[in-house]
Design a protein around this nucleic acid. Structure first.
Lengths: 121, 121
DNA sequence: CAGTATCCACCGGGATACTG
DNA sequence: CAGTATCCCGGTGGATACTG
C-alpha cells in the first residue's frame, strides 16, 4: 500500500481485506477530525474564501454560535487542517486559512459531491 | 453543475461559491447518512465482504453492541445504502449487502484513504 | 442466530451573558 | 471584533436482560 495507489489497486486491497489486516485503518483519524456538527461546513467555507475572518465565517454559516465556531476552529487547528493568523490591531482581526493538509481534502469533497449529485434527488 | 463534472470544474465552482449560492449543499445528506459512531465501519466491512451476516459484522467490528449494530443497519437500509435479505430458516439467517448507491461510495473511501496515507503518520 | 426492550450515563452542542 | 465563561438540555450510544 502506498499513497499513490490507483483506484483499482485500492479496490483490490479492500476486497482482499489487506487494509484491515494491517490493523490500522487510515480513514479513522480523518473521520475523527471531521466529527462534530460544523466541521465540514467550516472547511467548505474556507474552500470558498481563504483567508476568512471569524466574523465572516459566523455570518456565512447559518445558526452557528460563537462557542461552537471557536471550539471547532480550535480543534481543526489542533488537527493541522486550519491555521490561525492573529493581527494585533484594534479592533482585533483574526484570519483563518486552510493548511496544505486541509486543502488536500478537496478531492474528498469532490467525490462526495459527485455522489450526492448522482444519488440525492 | 452536473454529475459528470471534472475535478477542475468542481474546484472552479467551489471557488466561485456557485454550489452554495444554489442553496442546496449536495454533501449534507451524505453526511447525515454517515452520522453515528459505527456507520462508516459497517460500510467498510461490507466493502470487504458482501454479502455478510449480522453475526459476522458483529464479530468483525470491535466493541459494537447488538443494539447499535441493528439500529445502524436499519438506518443504512432506510437511506438506501444497504439491503437486507432475510432467509426463513432455523436458526435464522440474515444477510446484508451494499446497494448500488452504497457501492458508489467506494471512490469517497478511496480519496479519504489516499489522504490518510499522505497526511497521517 | 439475529435481533428487541429497557434503562441510564455522558457529553455534544445550544443559549445567554460577559470581556480584552 | 473575536472570542470566554457558565449553565443546561436532549439525544447518542453503552449495558444488560430477554425472545422468536
Amino acid at each position: 500500500m502506498h499513497k499513490d495507489m490507483t483506484y483499482d489497486e485500492y479496490r483490490h486491497e479492500v476486497k482482499e481485506g489487506i487494509l484491515t489486516e494491517a490493523g490500522n485503518c487510515p480513514v479513522t483519524p480523518l473521520l475523527l477530525m471531521l466529527q462534530g456538527k460544523w466541521k465540514f461546513q467550516i472547511l467548505y467555507e474556507l474552500f470558498i474564501q481563504d483567508p476568512i475572518r471569524f466574523g465572516e465565517l459566523k455570518k456565512n454559516i447559518n445558526g452557528i454560535t460563537n462557542t461552537m465556531l471557536a471550539s471547532s476552529l480550535r480543534e481543526l487547528e489542533k488537527d493541522g487542517l486550519v491555521s490561525r493568523m492573529q493581527f494585533n490591531e484594534i479592533p482585533p482581526r483574526v484570519e483563518y486559512s486552510l493548511t496544505e493538509k486541509g486543502q488536500a481534502l478537496l478531492p474528498v469533497f469532490y467525490e462526495m459531491t459527485k455522489w450526492g449529485f448522482q444519488y440525492i434527488p
